[in-house]
Design a protein around this nucleic acid. Structure first.
Length: 348
DNA sequence: AATTCGGGGCG
DNA sequence: CGCCCAGAATT
């Protein structure tokens, strides 16, 4: 039995029952693939179900305000995926409601790269293009004993070529599903159970006892420490002020309290010096106190945010203040959502 | 060719 | 605490 047949046989026995495996509709497949980029199935699954419910067709998605899409994406991270998803939906509708039906055309859609184009093309149209995701890198590097770094230019080229040579042109969809599922369920990153692996005899890494060494990845983790002092405005009627993040960079397009960046903790006097209060509160009198003496730590893959929340009670109403319900209905990043849940508990 | 985009789960 | 996840866009 060749590589692909073996893989597909394993897949038939061990595949998980996932909703996007019951459809060949490119829209639903596309949706699932975008949601699952750099995201575990268990984390993405509830989002997929909610998106299908809220936007049953690409036309529904295109017609929605981008803010609605971001709100539904809230908490999933990598928010440019949601923005690009919406942009691409509009692209499709503008193109006469025609969804691209091949790898090359799929690549033209915003947010669809090499992997996603191959996934949709193979799953929906049975085009024989190999997917190469994190699972595929791991499976191939181990079975074939390849130590080229998977995130180097050479590695990307080498693994893509090998993956394409291995794909069964008769069963592109099953093959691609199978190799990824195999990586996710059997050839896992840590402590794979090689004793029940159908490729044990073929696997170079297992024979050479190099499972823990493969795949090789060049690591570059620079974590930047940031200190954010958020200003939680509370007006006499209980309204507050949010501002939208810039359209680029981290948390683009999401909402949060206005904040100032500092080098660490601040005294109230230092805060009032750092903030252009006149601009925010336009002459209105206020008093402020810090909500948390110790910073709330919010960790991201490349940032560690030390967050301080200053509760600022104003003596009069403000023009640009919105209700708490209004604030909570905006798309928020997890740090914001967590604070609001703690500060303004939902009353049932 | 590198860096930048989140958040959560696991050992 | 570091690594990884159905990667893509930007610099």
């Amino acid at each position: 039995m060749n590589f692909s047949n073996k893989l597909i046989s394993w897949y038939q026995l061990h595949k998980r029952d996932l909703p996007w495996r019951h459809t060949s509709d490119p829209y639903f497949i596309w949706l699932s693939e975008i949601i699952l980029q750099q995201t575990r199935v268990n984390q993405g699954l509830p989002y997929y179900l909610r998106f299908v419910e809220a936007f049953p067709s690409v036309q529904d998605l295109a017609a929605a305000p981008q803010e609605d899409v971001l709100k539904l994406w809230q908490g999933l991270g990598y928010y440019s995926r949601a923005r690009n998803l919406h942009t691409a939906a509009v692209q499709v509708v503008d193109n006469g409601d025609t969804f691209p039906n091949n790898y090359k055309e799929l690549l033209k859609l915003k947010g669809i790269g090499d992997y996603t184009a191959a996934a949709i093309a193979s799953f929906a149209y049975n085009e024989p293009v190999a997917v190469v995701d994190g699972n595929v890198y791991r499976v191939l590097s181990r079975i074939f004993g390849i130590s080229t770094p998977i995130n180097s230019t050479d590695g990307i080229k080498e693994f893509k070529k090998l993956a394409q040579e291995l794909i069964d042109p008769k069963h592109p969809a099953s093959h691609n599903q199978a190799i990824m599922e195999f990586g996710a369920m059997q050839c896992v990153p840590k402590n794979p159970d090689c004793n029940i692996c159908p490729f044990q005899k073929d696997c170079v890494a297992f024979q050479d006892e190099r499972i823990t060494e493969l795949p090789v990845k060049i690591k570059k983790t620079k974590v930047l420490n940031l200190h954010h002092h958020y200003m939680v405005t509370v007006t006499p009627s209980g309204k507050t002020i949010l501002q939208e993040r810039p359209q680029s960079g981290i948390w683009a397009g999401l909402y949060e309290f206005p904040f100032v960046e500092a080098k660490g903790a601040l005294l109230p006097s230092e805060l009032t010096t750092a903030v252009d209060y006149e601009n925010v509160y336009s002459g209105v009198r206020f008093r402020e106190s810090v909500f948390n003496q110790e910073p709330i730590i919010h960790k991201l893959s490349h940032r560690k945010i030390h967050a301080y929340f200053w509760i600022i009670h104003t003596e009069s109403e403000l023009e640009n203040a919105i209700t708490i319900e209004g604030a909570r209905s905006k798309p928020l990043h997890v740090l914001m959502e967590r604070f609001m849940t703690q500060f303004w508990p939902l009353k049932s």
